[in-house]
């Protein structure tokens, strides 16, 4: 079983040379820590920066330079700032190559729910609906089950949707799964996790073909 850093480490392997990448809040943010340093990648934050760098050193923080999580950040050489409409032109116009975001639920046809729990949590969708409606390459980073132990990989989402039929790949603490027209196709299992464990933790239709290799991270 992987922890959050393990999930981020595995997803980092999906980040290729020359990619512009948008990272969501939570586990996705950790992905930046594990991207190979021999490739060129630029991170976009939807509040208006491309070429995000690490957090600033203490005392060097600038209230005018933050990421979408409202955290103080720095920029790398070659970075740029832009307005919100331009930022979402990059996203909607499919100029961003890879979007990594968290989810509360994903359905076997690729629907995603991650912005609202009716009556409990209504914070808003932020940029998530724009991202999932447009990105060609969306990876969901999440735990396989919720705190109550229920599967987050479902036949149908029960929560209000963020987008329909958009998720292509899911990396959880238990598995790497591809969303196909026939359902969740199991690609890899986490170290120490059996196919049987994954089956039990997956409510939606799980496709298992041949031997399922263990993730290499």
């Amino acid at each position: 079983m992987l922890d959050k850093n393990g999930i981020a480490k595995r997803i980092a392997k999906e980040v290729k040379d020359g990619y512009y990448v948008n990272l969501g809040i939570g586990i996705p943010t950790l992905v930046a820590n594990f991207v190979r340093d021999d490739i060129e990648v630029e991170f976009q934050s939807e509040n208006g920066v491309l070429g995000m760098g690490p957090f600033p050193f203490e005392g060097e923080e600038d209230a005018d330079i933050i990421n979408a999580g409202k955290q103080t950040i720095t920029t790398l050489p070659g970075a740029s700032f832009f307005d919100s409409a331009t930022s979402f032109a990059m996203i909607r116009g499919q100029h961003v190559d890879l979007t990594i975001l968290g989810a509360m639920e994903v359905s076997e046809n690729g629907d995603i729910a991650n912005w609202k729990i009716p009556g409990k949590m209504v914070k808003g969708m932020g940029g998530a609906m724009d991202l999932v409606a447009s990105a060609e390459n969306i990876i969901v980073a999440m735990m396989h089950t919720n705190r109550a132990g229920d599967s987050k990989l479902l036949k149908n989402c029960s929560l209000p949707l963020t987008g329909v039929g958009c998720v292509k790949k899911i990396v959880t603490n238990m598995a790497v799964i591809e969303v196909t027209t026939k359902g969740f196709k199991l690609l890899e299992r986490a170290p120490g996790v059996s196919v049987e464990d994954i089956k039990k933790a997956t409510e939606g239709h799980l496709i298992i073909e041949g031997d399922i290799p263990e993730m290499r991270i």
């Binding site: 957090f55 600033p56 050193f57 209230a63 005018d64 933050i66 103080t72």
Partner: peptide, 12 residues
């Protein structure tokens, strides 16, 4: 005032 909402820094 330019208040910072989430001050995040790294140590030297």
């Amino acid at each position: 005032e330019k208040r910072i909402e989430q001050l995040t820094v790294r140590q030297k």
